[in-house]
Design a protein around this nucleic acid. Structure first.
Lengths: 243, 243
DNA sequence: CCAGCCTGCGCTACGCTGTAGATATTATGT
DNA sequence: ACATAATATCTACAGCGTAGCGCAGGCTGG
């Protein structure tokens, strides 16, 4: 490629600058997520994002103070897919307090679905919160927590109990997603399970169990494992509720 | 500071280059962890690490192929603090199959302790695994999983069940640590709980529960919450074992 | 109708990053 | 003693986030 690729289009076609439709935060974040989905977080640079939007990279700073703020925006944008839409609420509370277990299962599966749709955003989703006080985080990030607390309160937990249950539960599917994504990264060309997972690298004496689990690891079924885990966790929460 | 700080010492004192004691991987990783602990992952640059070791930054590449490999090394280094030392094993299996619940609790608390000792390494610890196939990860990272599988097998789970239990359990304390670290980041100057946590920023209509939990959030006790969660998860695992 | 501001955008430039490649120095084999 | 290999250091480069400044067009107040 020529040395000035990326910017050449804008250079040869002066193209009255104010003529293009105004850049929106929405467009920016969508493009950013697309880049991360395609090539990972480290590929998201201001220059590349600008190129994807056919704008000068610096134009982005009009809608995001920082690159950090941009990443927060990305997290918020993806987190928006997580909250269950309060759809019409036509049947009063028909959907909400019916079966709290079923709702929790649905939330967990939604989280899993979104995580699998944007696997390379997951590290951001899980660890960005560590970069600042809870309440200074983008509000969209907190809605899931609020929703869980509400659900557990409705299920009969007291205030504190509901908070703890919500944290336990979200922590559970955080963990699940981390494991499932790790499992997912494999070399699909190799047919032998042990080889495909690269497990032959593991010293047999040090990792006897992991090696013997090759076929099990290869036959990973995320949705099933999530359901299984849900059963266990919900059983635990039930027993907690009874006391 | 002068323009050439960082390197000036080595410049004025030529100091025969091979004379210094040979750099070890151990030293490098210790220094790297120290930098991350002090100023975060983004502060860990090759130049600064070289400065901390009083060596040319490029010297590090003799012990780590990449910066990525260096980060893997950091994770491995911290993960080494996690595995419970197989201490002397004098009393046969006295310590190992006695009370699997107690051992699980101990493992979880160890993980929590290490995470709190290196909070800024935690994002790496949890998300680095996502950057490559399981078996290509630094071996030290996998020992905890192997240990958990062994433990659950001893507790009576079958192979598959033990794997799932191990993942569920580790996922649980992954989640816990993420939540506890987020909670920990606060402004200690403010006395009012609601203000201290910045919760006043939250719109009351959108986050009624979270706001009303101000005092609870302020009185966060990580060890206690971990124990509480352990009770719930272990209850769930017990009920799973019974079927 | 126009002056003036305000907003959104583009360009240039700066100090930083990771690291390839060339160079300089020391240790080793005979 | 000298050739060779091994290691440490230096230089340089492309790419990063972003501060600073200039330019255009739309809106407001007179």
């Amino acid at each position: 490629m020529t040395s000035d690729s990326g910017r050449v289009r804008r250079a040869v076609t002066p193209q009255p600058p104010g003529r293009r439709t105004g850049l929106t935060r929405e467009q920016i974040l969508t493009a950013a997520v697309a880049i991360i989905d395609a090539d990972g977080v480290e590929a998201l640079t201001m220059r590349r994002l600008g190129q994807a939007l056919d704008r000068d990279p610096m134009a982005i700073y009009r809608h995001a103070a920082d690159k950090d703020a941009l990443l927060d925006g990305v997290v918020e944008h993806v987190a928006a897919e997580l909250i269950t839409p309060h759809e019409s609420d036509k049947n009063g509370n028909g959907d909400r307090d019916g079966d709290w277990e079923a709702q929790l299962r649905r939330i967990a599966h939604t989280f899993r679905r979104v995580a699998l749709a944007h696997p390379r955003v997951v590290p951001l989703l899980l660890t960005r919160p560590l970069s600042g006080p809870l309440a200074l985080r983008p509000l969209g990030t907190l809605q899931l927590l609020e929703e869980l607390i509400e659900l557990f309160t409705a299920a009969g937990f007291d205030q504190t109990g509901a908070l703890h249950a919500a944290r336990l539960f979200s922590g559970f599917f955080y963990g699940h997603v981390l494991h499932e994504l790790q499992e997912q990264i494999q070399n699909p060309d190799e047919t032998d399970d042990l080889l495909r997972l690269g497990l032959h690298r593991l010293p047999i004496t040090q990792f006897p169990r992991l090696r013997s689990l090759a076929t099990t690891l290869a036959a990973y079924d995320g949705a099933a494992e999530l359901d299984e885990g849900l059963t266990i966790v919900l059983a635990g929460l039930h027993s907690q509720l009874r006391t």
